[in-house]
Amino acid sequence: MHSKADTRATLSLRLATWGGMLFLHLPFLFILLYAFSTEEKSYQFPPPGLTTKWFAVAFGRQDIWDAISLSLRVASVSTIISLTLGTLAAAALYKRRFFGKEAISLLIILPIALPGVITGISLRSAFHLLHIPFSTWTIVLGHATFCIVVVYNNAVARFRRVSGSQIEASMDLGADGFQTFRHVVLPNIATALLAGGMLAFALSFDEVIVTTFTAGQETTLPIWMLTELIRPRQRPVTNVVAIFIMAITFIPILLAYYWIRDGEDVEGGSK
Protein backbone atom coordinates (compact mmCIF):
# COMPACT_ATOMS: atom_id res chain seq x y z
CA MET A 1 0.00 0.00 0.00
CA HIS A 2 1.43 3.38 -0.98
CA SER A 3 1.91 6.00 1.69
CA LYS A 4 0.89 9.65 1.32
CA ALA A 5 4.55 10.63 1.01
CA ASP A 6 4.97 8.23 -1.94
CA THR A 7 1.83 9.65 -3.56
CA ARG A 8 3.10 13.23 -3.15
CA ALA A 9 6.49 12.25 -4.58
CA THR A 10 4.86 10.58 -7.58
CA LEU A 11 2.62 13.61 -8.19
CA SER A 12 5.58 15.98 -7.91
CA LEU A 13 7.57 13.87 -10.38
CA ARG A 14 4.69 13.91 -12.86
CA LEU A 15 4.25 17.66 -12.55
CA ALA A 16 8.00 18.19 -13.01
CA THR A 17 7.96 15.92 -16.07
CA TRP A 18 5.05 17.76 -17.68
CA GLY A 19 6.65 21.09 -16.79
CA GLY A 20 9.85 20.04 -18.52
CA MET A 21 7.94 18.86 -21.59
CA LEU A 22 6.07 22.15 -21.82
CA PHE A 23 9.32 24.10 -21.45
CA LEU A 24 10.84 22.12 -24.33
CA HIS A 25 7.89 22.04 -26.71
CA LEU A 26 5.77 25.13 -26.06
CA PRO A 27 8.08 27.33 -28.22
CA PHE A 28 7.25 25.09 -31.19
CA LEU A 29 3.59 26.02 -30.78
CA PHE A 30 4.50 29.72 -30.91
CA ILE A 31 6.43 29.09 -34.14
CA LEU A 32 3.30 27.49 -35.58
CA LEU A 33 1.09 30.35 -34.35
CA TYR A 34 3.25 33.15 -35.76
CA ALA A 35 3.45 31.42 -39.15
CA PHE A 36 -0.22 32.40 -39.57
CA SER A 37 0.06 35.93 -38.15
CA THR A 38 -1.03 38.88 -40.30
CA GLU A 39 1.63 41.10 -38.66
CA GLU A 40 4.72 41.27 -40.90
CA LYS A 41 7.49 42.83 -38.81
CA SER A 42 6.90 41.95 -35.15
CA TYR A 43 5.85 39.09 -32.90
CA GLN A 44 2.71 40.53 -31.37
CA PHE A 45 0.78 38.35 -28.93
CA PRO A 46 -1.93 37.56 -29.51
CA PRO A 47 -1.58 38.01 -33.29
CA PRO A 48 -3.88 40.69 -34.71
CA GLY A 49 -5.20 38.17 -37.21
CA LEU A 50 -4.55 34.84 -38.89
CA THR A 51 -3.81 34.11 -42.54
CA THR A 52 -2.31 31.34 -44.67
CA LYS A 53 -0.83 33.65 -47.31
CA TRP A 54 2.72 33.33 -45.93
CA PHE A 55 2.93 29.70 -47.02
CA ALA A 56 2.42 30.75 -50.64
CA VAL A 57 4.87 33.62 -50.20
CA ALA A 58 7.53 31.28 -48.77
CA PHE A 59 6.99 28.74 -51.56
CA GLY A 60 7.51 31.42 -54.19
CA ARG A 61 10.71 32.96 -52.80
CA GLN A 62 13.76 31.65 -54.64
CA ASP A 63 16.19 32.84 -51.96
CA ILE A 64 14.63 30.37 -49.51
CA TRP A 65 15.00 27.44 -51.90
CA ASP A 66 18.60 28.42 -52.66
CA ALA A 67 19.41 28.54 -48.93
CA ILE A 68 17.76 25.17 -48.27
CA SER A 69 19.53 23.59 -51.23
CA LEU A 70 22.92 24.88 -50.08
CA SER A 71 22.38 23.70 -46.50
CA LEU A 72 21.34 20.23 -47.68
CA ARG A 73 24.38 19.93 -49.96
CA VAL A 74 26.79 21.13 -47.28
CA ALA A 75 25.30 18.89 -44.60
CA SER A 76 25.30 15.84 -46.89
CA VAL A 77 28.92 16.22 -47.98
CA SER A 78 30.06 17.06 -44.44
CA THR A 79 28.31 13.95 -43.14
CA ILE A 80 29.92 11.71 -45.76
CA ILE A 81 33.38 13.11 -44.98
CA SER A 82 32.75 12.79 -41.24
CA LEU A 83 31.53 9.20 -41.49
CA THR A 84 34.58 8.21 -43.52
CA LEU A 85 37.28 9.99 -41.51
CA GLY A 86 35.62 9.54 -38.11
CA THR A 87 35.19 5.80 -38.59
CA LEU A 88 38.76 5.36 -39.86
CA ALA A 89 40.15 7.35 -36.93
CA ALA A 90 38.12 5.31 -34.44
CA ALA A 91 39.26 2.03 -36.04
CA ALA A 92 42.88 3.16 -35.91
CA LEU A 93 42.88 4.29 -32.27
CA TYR A 94 40.34 2.29 -30.28
CA LYS A 95 42.53 -0.75 -29.50
CA ARG A 96 46.10 0.26 -30.20
CA ARG A 97 48.47 1.54 -27.55
CA PHE A 98 51.34 3.83 -28.52
CA PHE A 99 53.07 6.94 -27.30
CA GLY A 100 51.02 10.06 -28.07
CA LYS A 101 47.67 8.26 -28.49
CA GLU A 102 45.94 10.44 -25.89
CA ALA A 103 47.30 13.58 -27.55
CA ILE A 104 45.95 12.49 -30.93
CA SER A 105 42.56 11.68 -29.40
CA LEU A 106 42.49 15.12 -27.79
CA LEU A 107 43.30 16.80 -31.10
CA ILE A 108 40.43 14.94 -32.79
CA ILE A 109 37.93 15.97 -30.10
CA LEU A 110 39.24 19.53 -29.69
CA PRO A 111 37.21 21.23 -32.51
CA ILE A 112 33.89 20.49 -30.83
CA ALA A 113 35.20 21.46 -27.38
CA LEU A 114 36.43 24.87 -28.54
CA PRO A 115 33.97 27.76 -28.93
CA GLY A 116 32.69 28.00 -32.49
CA VAL A 117 34.05 31.52 -32.87
CA ILE A 118 37.59 30.24 -32.23
CA THR A 119 37.19 27.51 -34.84
CA GLY A 120 35.70 30.00 -37.30
CA ILE A 121 38.50 32.56 -36.87
CA SER A 122 41.16 29.84 -37.16
CA LEU A 123 39.69 28.46 -40.36
CA ARG A 124 39.24 31.91 -41.88
CA SER A 125 42.87 32.76 -41.14
CA ALA A 126 44.03 29.46 -42.63
CA PHE A 127 42.00 29.99 -45.81
CA HIS A 128 43.50 33.49 -46.18
CA LEU A 129 47.05 32.23 -45.71
CA LEU A 130 46.53 29.41 -48.23
CA HIS A 131 44.72 31.75 -50.68
CA ILE A 132 41.66 29.50 -50.71
CA PRO A 133 38.59 31.43 -51.97
CA PHE A 134 35.48 31.20 -49.84
CA SER A 135 32.90 28.89 -51.36
CA THR A 136 30.66 25.94 -50.60
CA TRP A 137 33.76 23.82 -50.03
CA THR A 138 35.14 26.10 -47.34
CA ILE A 139 31.81 25.74 -45.51
CA VAL A 140 32.04 21.96 -45.87
CA LEU A 141 35.58 21.92 -44.47
CA GLY A 142 34.51 24.08 -41.56
CA HIS A 143 31.57 21.84 -40.71
CA ALA A 144 33.57 18.63 -41.12
CA THR A 145 36.01 19.73 -38.40
CA PHE A 146 33.40 19.25 -35.68
CA CYS A 147 31.16 16.68 -37.41
CA ILE A 148 34.07 14.22 -37.45
CA VAL A 149 34.13 14.39 -33.66
CA VAL A 150 30.56 13.17 -33.15
CA VAL A 151 31.06 10.26 -35.56
CA TYR A 152 34.39 9.41 -33.94
CA ASN A 153 32.91 9.40 -30.43
CA ASN A 154 30.02 7.12 -31.46
CA ALA A 155 32.24 4.79 -33.49
CA VAL A 156 35.02 4.42 -30.92
CA ALA A 157 32.51 3.64 -28.17
CA ARG A 158 30.97 0.89 -30.30
CA PHE A 159 34.35 -0.44 -31.47
CA ARG A 160 35.26 -1.07 -27.83
CA ARG A 161 32.27 -3.40 -27.60
CA VAL A 162 33.19 -5.42 -30.69
CA SER A 163 34.61 -8.79 -29.69
CA GLY A 164 38.13 -9.32 -31.01
CA SER A 165 37.46 -13.05 -31.24
CA GLN A 166 34.86 -12.45 -33.97
CA ILE A 167 37.39 -10.57 -36.09
CA GLU A 168 40.06 -13.23 -35.49
CA ALA A 169 37.62 -16.01 -36.38
CA SER A 170 36.69 -14.24 -39.61
CA MET A 171 40.34 -13.89 -40.62
CA ASP A 172 41.06 -17.51 -39.67
CA LEU A 173 38.24 -18.65 -41.94
CA GLY A 174 39.89 -16.94 -44.91
CA ALA A 175 38.10 -13.60 -45.05
CA ASP A 176 40.19 -10.63 -46.17
CA GLY A 177 40.14 -7.25 -44.45
CA PHE A 178 37.26 -5.88 -46.51
CA GLN A 179 35.11 -9.00 -46.03
CA THR A 180 35.75 -8.94 -42.29
CA PHE A 181 34.74 -5.29 -42.12
CA ARG A 182 31.65 -5.86 -44.30
CA HIS A 183 30.28 -8.96 -42.57
CA VAL A 184 31.58 -8.67 -38.99
CA VAL A 185 32.61 -5.15 -38.03
CA LEU A 186 30.01 -3.11 -39.93
CA PRO A 187 26.94 -4.94 -38.52
CA ASN A 188 28.32 -4.29 -35.03
CA ILE A 189 28.88 -0.58 -35.52
CA ALA A 190 26.04 0.21 -37.96
CA THR A 191 23.67 1.73 -35.41
CA ALA A 192 26.49 3.84 -33.94
CA LEU A 193 27.35 5.15 -37.41
CA LEU A 194 23.67 5.87 -38.07
CA ALA A 195 23.41 7.86 -34.85
CA GLY A 196 26.69 9.67 -35.51
CA GLY A 197 25.74 10.44 -39.10
CA MET A 198 22.35 11.84 -38.11
CA LEU A 199 23.90 14.00 -35.41
CA ALA A 200 26.61 15.22 -37.80
CA PHE A 201 23.98 16.10 -40.42
CA ALA A 202 21.88 17.98 -37.85
CA LEU A 203 24.87 19.90 -36.48
CA SER A 204 25.98 20.87 -39.97
CA PHE A 205 22.50 21.81 -41.15
CA ASP A 206 21.90 24.34 -38.35
CA GLU A 207 25.46 25.63 -37.84
CA VAL A 208 25.71 29.43 -37.74
CA ILE A 209 28.94 30.59 -36.11
CA VAL A 210 31.51 28.62 -38.12
CA THR A 211 29.47 29.21 -41.29
CA THR A 212 29.61 32.97 -40.74
CA PHE A 213 33.42 32.88 -40.91
CA THR A 214 33.75 30.41 -43.80
CA ALA A 215 30.81 31.16 -46.11
CA GLY A 216 31.92 34.31 -47.88
CA GLN A 217 28.92 35.34 -50.01
CA GLU A 218 27.16 31.99 -49.65
CA THR A 219 23.94 31.91 -47.63
CA THR A 220 22.91 28.74 -45.84
CA LEU A 221 19.46 28.38 -44.34
CA PRO A 222 20.48 29.31 -40.74
CA ILE A 223 22.29 32.40 -42.04
CA TRP A 224 19.23 33.31 -44.09
CA MET A 225 16.93 32.94 -41.07
CA LEU A 226 19.27 34.99 -38.86
CA THR A 227 19.37 37.75 -41.46
CA GLU A 228 15.59 37.75 -41.77
CA LEU A 229 15.17 38.09 -38.01
CA ILE A 230 17.74 40.90 -37.69
CA ARG A 231 16.32 42.86 -40.62
CA PRO A 232 12.68 41.85 -40.62
CA ARG A 233 10.83 42.01 -43.89
CA GLN A 234 8.26 39.22 -43.63
CA ARG A 235 8.84 37.53 -40.28
CA PRO A 236 5.99 35.01 -40.61
CA VAL A 237 7.83 33.58 -43.63
CA THR A 238 10.72 32.67 -41.32
CA ASN A 239 8.29 30.73 -39.14
CA VAL A 240 6.84 28.96 -42.19
CA VAL A 241 10.34 27.85 -43.17
CA ALA A 242 10.97 26.67 -39.59
CA ILE A 243 7.80 24.55 -39.68
CA PHE A 244 8.83 23.06 -43.03
CA ILE A 245 12.27 22.14 -41.70
CA MET A 246 10.81 20.55 -38.55
CA ALA A 247 8.45 18.46 -40.67
CA ILE A 248 11.23 17.34 -43.01
CA THR A 249 13.69 16.43 -40.23
CA PHE A 250 11.03 14.40 -38.43
CA ILE A 251 11.01 11.85 -41.26
CA PRO A 252 14.66 10.64 -41.02
CA ILE A 253 14.43 10.64 -37.22
CA LEU A 254 11.38 8.38 -37.39
CA LEU A 255 13.04 6.11 -39.97
CA ALA A 256 16.22 5.89 -37.90
CA TYR A 257 14.19 4.92 -34.86
CA TYR A 258 12.60 2.01 -36.71
CA TRP A 259 15.91 0.93 -38.25
CA ILE A 260 17.60 0.85 -34.88
CA ARG A 261 14.66 -0.93 -33.28
CA ASP A 262 14.55 -3.57 -36.02
CA GLY A 263 18.32 -4.02 -35.74
CA GLU A 264 18.06 -5.16 -32.13
CA ASP A 265 17.69 -8.79 -33.16
CA VAL A 266 20.53 -8.65 -35.68
CA GLU A 267 24.09 -9.63 -34.86
CA GLY A 268 25.80 -6.59 -33.43
CA GLY A 269 22.52 -4.67 -33.30
CA SER A 270 22.33 -4.27 -29.52
CA LYS A 271 21.89 -0.67 -28.43
Rank of each mutant, 00 (worst) to 15 (best):
K4Y: 12
F28L: 15
T38G: 13
G269Y: 00
A215M: 09
L255A: 14
G100F: 12
V184C: 05
H183G: 05
Y34P: 00
H2S: 14
A9Y: 10
K53T: 10
A113H: 10
S204Y: 03
S78W: 01
T191M: 01
G263K: 02
T52D: 01
F55D: 01
E40I: 10
L72T: 03
F146A: 07
H131N: 14
Y257P: 00
G86K: 08
M1H: 01
S78M: 02
F201W: 08
W224A: 01
K271F: 09
S170Q: 10
T211H: 10
A103V: 13
H128Y: 13
S71I: 05
R158P: 03
F146C: 05
A247N: 05
D176K: 11
N154R: 12
I64C: 07
H143K: 05
F55N: 00
H128K: 14
S170F: 05
S122I: 06
P232G: 03
I248L: 15
V140Y: 04
G19L: 09
K101A: 10
R231C: 03
R8V: 10
F146K: 05
L50N: 04
I109G: 04
P27K: 11
V237F: 09
M1A: 08
F213V: 02
I253L: 15
L106M: 15
F55Y: 07
G269E: 04
L129G: 11
S135N: 08
N154T: 12
S170R: 11
T180K: 08
P48N: 13
G197F: 02
D6H: 13
N239G: 04
D206H: 12
D176A: 07
A157K: 11
L93Y: 03
L13V: 09
D66S: 14
I121H: 07
L83N: 00
P222C: 11
K271L: 15
E40K: 15
V140W: 04
T238M: 11
W259M: 12
A103Y: 08
R231L: 14
I230P: 02
S78F: 00
E218I: 03
L107M: 15
A126K: 11
G268E: 04
L193P: 04
I139H: 00
T10Y: 14
F59M: 13
F244P: 00
Y34E: 01
T191Y: 01
D63W: 04
G263I: 00
F178R: 00
N239I: 06
W65C: 09
L141G: 13
V266Y: 11
V208R: 02
D206L: 12
C147K: 05
G142F: 02
L129V: 09
T7R: 15
S163Y: 02
V77T: 07
P48F: 04
F178E: 02
P27A: 11
L110D: 08
L203V: 08
W65Q: 07
A126P: 02
T136D: 07
S165C: 03
I80L: 15
T136A: 09
M198T: 09
V117E: 11
L193C: 11
E39R: 10
R161T: 07
G19M: 06
I248G: 07
A113C: 12
I253N: 14
Q234C: 07
A90G: 09
I31N: 09
S204Q: 06
Q62L: 13
H131M: 12
N188I: 01
S12V: 10
